[in-house]
Amino acid sequence: MTADHEAEPVARWLAGLGLHAVVLPYPVAPEGATGPLHPAPLDAAAAAVRWVRAGGTGLDVDAGRVGVLGFSAGGHLAATLSTVEDAGARPDATVLCYPVVSLVAEPHVGSVDALLGTGADADARAALSADRRVTAATPPAFVWHTADDDAVPVSHAVRYAQALWAVGVPAELHVYPTGRHGLGLATDDVHVARWADACAAWLTQLGWRAPDA
C-alpha cells in the first residue's frame, strides 16, 4: 500500500525548501496477491527519474540534481533505485525514512511476499536487499528511523548507512529513541519531527539549497 500522508504533504514540504517535488504513485501488490510484484515498482521509479531528467515536468530541473525520497516499503524502492547500474535512472541523492532495506536480515515479511511472491528463495531475497547492492556509484543518503519501530527494525536503516560508509559514500544517519512506524513528517511527535530540519540542513550541505534558504 501507499500512504497519502507520505505523499503530497512531503512534496509540499520539499517545495517549501525551494525544491521541485514530484509524487510517484508506483505499482503495489493487490490484496491477496501471491505472485511477484518486482520489477514493476522499480521500472516505474526508473522511468520517472528519466522523465524528470529529460524535462518532462516542464519545470526548470537540474538534471544532475535529481533525488528520491521514500518511506517504509517506499524506502526500499528508493534505496533499490539508488543502486541500479543505469546512471540515467539512478538518482543523485537519496532520503530514506524508516526504510525496508534487507529482505534477508530481520526482513519485513509483507514486503518480501509482495515483491517476490511467497516462498522466495535466499538468492532472490539477497539480490533485492538494497544494502547488498550498494557500490561506490550509489548516491549519498540521508537516513532516519526510530529505535523502537515495531514494524521495520531500525537495523535496516543502519545496514544501508553502513554499506555506504564501507564504500566511501557519504551517509547521514539519525536514529530517534522512540516513535511509531509510519510517522511521515511526524507533526504529532515534536522530537522526531526534527528529522525534516536535519534533512533540510543535509540538502543545504549537499549544495542543493542556498545556505540562507
Rank of each mutant, 00 (worst) to 15 (best):
L115P: 07
P99M: 06
V101C: 11
V84N: 13
V104P: 09
L103S: 05
T80N: 05
P107E: 07
G74N: 02
L116M: 12
E85A: 15
G110N: 06
D86L: 13
A120T: 02
G88K: 10
V68W: 08
S102E: 03
V100H: 01
A89I: 13
D62Q: 05
R90F: 12
T94K: 00
E85R: 15
V95H: 11
V109P: 00
H76L: 15
T118D: 01
L116E: 09
Y98G: 08
V100G: 03
G119L: 08
S82Q: 04
D113F: 01
G110I: 07
S72M: 14
A114N: 15
A120W: 08
A73F: 10
D86W: 14
L116S: 03
V95P: 02
D113Y: 09
V68C: 10
C97I: 11
D86I: 11
C97V: 15
D113H: 11
L77D: 10
R90I: 11
F71A: 10
G67N: 08
F71R: 11
L81D: 04
D62T: 05
L69E: 09
P91K: 06
E106H: 13
V95I: 14
T83K: 03
V95D: 09
G58S: 03
V68G: 01
A105D: 15
H108I: 07
P107L: 07
V104A: 13
P107A: 04
R90L: 10
L59G: 07
V68H: 07
A89D: 11
G75L: 00
A73V: 06
E106S: 14
P91T: 01
V61F: 00
G70R: 12
A87I: 12
V100R: 02
D113R: 12
V101K: 05
D113W: 10
D113K: 07
V66L: 04
T80F: 05
Y98R: 00
V100M: 06
P91Y: 05
G119P: 01
R90A: 05
V101R: 07
V109K: 12
V104L: 14
V101N: 06
D92N: 15
A93P: 00
F71G: 04
T83R: 06
L81M: 01
L103I: 09
L115M: 15
L116Q: 07
L115D: 02
D60Q: 15
V84H: 14
L115V: 03
T94M: 15
S111N: 14
D86T: 12
H76V: 02
